[in-house]
Design a protein around this nucleic acid. Structure first.
Lengths: 133, 133
DNA sequence: GTGGCACTTGAACCGGACTTCAAGTCAAGG
DNA sequence: CCTTGACTTGAAGTCCGGTTCAAGTGCCAC
């Protein structure tokens, strides 16, 4: 008998459908060592349903601004090292969020200010200066 | 006499230094139509000091998640269309900020939860499901 | 006047994240 | 048994944002 009750295996098209990720991308993730099929049916990859979660994890990593290489790195970090590593990532994320909020504020100001061209607006220009060395 | 008092022209190395952007990148921006030198001294590009602001604008756009092509698009939008366009960009930015905040929350939860592997944590997995179609 | 050196060019290359293509395989259904 | 069509492969192509290279030019200091 199987390990679990209804552990139907999925083929690549089903994983693609369930995740919204193209089969070519799933094979690409596999090449990078981020996603492994359970086995093969002939040539065809078969995936356990958990593969869908795995792909969601990849999507989450990308949404968090991890590169695929960084995600692989994270997955290979020793269990005890994960927390410090994630602390680092949170700091990166906080900086990015802050940069975005500043950008939003700049654009938002541009919407309400009087100056015809953005570069004529002292407030806008002052914001820009922060980006220079 | 000159248009303005101390309008010293800069060469590409000076603009590069003032902005922290490599000369090769400045030439690349020029190819894309994002940055134009004032003229030439022989072969050498000369820039008005405002070019530094222009580069800062490019940096700001990149920091805001605009691609260079999108920035070019923005610069070519008719003056009257700029405000609606920017409204659109603010919405994009708000969505990205929100996605980042969610990502941060996921990572932050991972730091405090008890589960040895992230994929064992129901809270974490629940967050992931939002990323699937 | 002449030489050095920072600039110029176009083309090629890079890495990331994929997609596309041609050619081949093979499990399943009629 | 044989067709079919979704899968397989590796290689090449794409887009983005540049960098690097080789070869050439010409301003400025001496």
């Amino acid at each position: 008998m199987d390990t679990a009750a209804g552990a139907r295996l999925l083929d690549i098209a089903e994983v693609a459908e369930a995740t919204g990720v193209a089969p070519s991308a799933l094979r690409y993730y596999e090449r990078l060592g981020l996603l492994a099929p359970e086995g093969r049916n002939g040539l065809r990859r078969t995936y356990r349903p958990e593969a869908v979660d795995r792909v969601a994890l990849i999507l989450a990593a990308r949404a968090s601004g991890f590169s695929l290489a960084e995600l692989k790195e994270l997955l290979e970090v020793a269990p005890g090292e994960v927390r410090p590593y994630l602390h680092g990532r949170i700091e990166v994320l906080d900086r990015r969020i802050e940069a975005m909020r500043e950008a939003r504020a700049r654009i938002s100001h541009a919407l309400t200010c009087e100056h015809p061209s953005l570069l004529d607006c002292p407030t806008f220009r002052a914001g820009l200066r922060d980006l220079l060395p």
